[in-house]
Amino acid sequence: MTPEDVLAEFREAGALLEGHFILSSGLHSGVFLQKMAIFSDPVRTERLCSVLASLIKETFGAIDIVVSPAIGGIVPGYETARHLGAKAIFVEREPGGPFTLRRGFSIPAGARAVIVEDIVTTGLSARECLASLSGEAGEVVGAACLIDRSGGRGDIGLRLASLVTLDIPAYAADALPPELAALPAVKPGSRMTSAR
């Protein structure tokens, strides 16, 4: 599957939106990727995550555990883990706190883990996920996502493999280009507290 094929999946699902959007990071953009339009379709999700699993194998080798940040990463993490023959676990936020492994999840000694995200904008969620795993005995060997919208500039602290890398500009509210400022802003995301 080529990057254009991946983008076609997003377009066909109505998941590649254009307008004026306030991202979960608080930044503004003319493009929004509504990943839940993808993840509500099990066939489309399986198709994309099987390709992501192949890319992970090619990039990082054998993987024992896929770790994803809740909530947005759970579906692609699980489906990618299924195609890798790996265990799927996730980190979640304590109320008002950082990500943490709960529910008896762990990365035991000798295990090779990869972080799987849906969309990477700034890399903050993946960085926070990685930080929460620092005390685990196993090794986190890399990270992967469906779309890296940072143009490769998202700082994760690990090598990032993505099906598509896009350079989609995002702007602070006080630095909008005139054509974006002229459109009404919409907040389609689910998290409005920190950069992602």
Rank of each mutant, 00 (worst) to 15 (best):
A8V: 01
E9D: 15
R11I: 07
R11G: 00
G14S: 11
H20Y: 04
F21V: 01
I22M: 09
L27A: 12
H28D: 10
S40T: 06
D41V: 04
P42Y: 10
V43Y: 13
R44L: 15
T45V: 12
R47C: 13
C49G: 01
C49Q: 10
C49N: 11
S50F: 10
V51T: 13
L52S: 03
A53V: 05
I56H: 08
I56R: 03
F60L: 02
I63R: 08
P69Q: 04
P69E: 01
I71Y: 13
G73Y: 03
P76F: 08
E79G: 02
H83M: 08
G85E: 01
E92V: 10
G96Y: 10
G97Q: 06
T100E: 14
L101D: 12
P108M: 09
A111K: 15
A113Y: 04
V114Y: 00
I115T: 02
V116A: 05
S125F: 01
A131I: 08
L133Y: 00
S134P: 02
S134W: 11
A137V: 03
A137W: 13
G138W: 07
V140K: 01
V140W: 04
A143W: 06
A144T: 06
A144R: 00
L146F: 10
I147A: 04
G151N: 09
G152K: 08
D155R: 13
R159L: 10
L160K: 00
A161Q: 02
A161P: 00
L166N: 08
I168V: 13
Y171H: 13
Y171A: 04
A173C: 11
D174P: 06
A175D: 04
P177A: 09
L180A: 12
L183G: 03
P184Q: 09
A185D: 09
V186D: 05
P188M: 02
P188Y: 07
R191A: 11
T193N: 15
T193Y: 02
T193E: 15
